[in-house]
Amino acid sequence: MNVIIGTVLIWGAAFALLRHIARVDRAKLPQVWRAARATFLVMLPRTVIGLSGASFMAALLPKGQMAALFGPEQGITGILLATVVGAATPGGPMVALALSATAFKAGAGTGALLAYLTSWSIISLTRTLGSELALMGPTFLIRRLILSAPVPVMIGLAAQAIQASW
C-alpha cells in the first residue's frame, strides 16, 4: 500500500514538472525522456543485483544473536561492536529498530545503542546497494561512507559520557 501511495505521489510531482516544461518549451520533453531512460537503464541492473544481494545478506545474519552482541558489553568495546553490527544490518527501519528495541530491553548501554542506530543509518545496505550506488555513483558513496565512518563511535562515546554524568 505504501508503495502505491509513494508511486502515485512521485508520478504526480513528475507530471506537474513535465507539464510545466511542456508549457515553457515543448521541444525539451524528448530530452527529458531520453535522459530519464538512459539513467533508468544504467540503474536497473545495479538496483536488481543490489537489492537481491542485500536480502541474501539479511538471510545470512544471525538476527537473534545480534542484539545480544552489544548487550552486556560496555565502554568502547561495546560501542565498536555495535558500530560493526549496525553497519552489517540490512533491511529497512523495521529490522534495525526492532533489534534496537530488543537490545534496549536487554539492557544495552545508551552509547552502544546510539552507535548502532547511527551506524545503521549511515550504511543501511539495502539503501546504499539498492539505490545510492546506482544513482549517485561509487565515488560519491565511498566518500560519504569514509567521511561518516568515525561518526557512530563519536556519538556513542558522547552518549555514554552523558549517561554517566546523569
Binding site: V3, G6, T7, I10, W11, A13, A14, L17, L18, H20, I21, K28, Q31, V32, A35, A36, T39, F40, M43, T47, S131, L135
Partner: peptide, 17 residues
C-alpha cells in the same frame, strides 16, 4: 520499478526547470 522510474523522471525534469 514504476516508483524508481518516476523518481528519475522527477529528478531530470527538476534539474531542467
Amino acid at each position: 520499478l514504476p516508483k524508481i522510474f518516476g523518481g528519475i523522471l522527477l529528478a531530470i525534469a527538476l534539474s531542467m526547470i
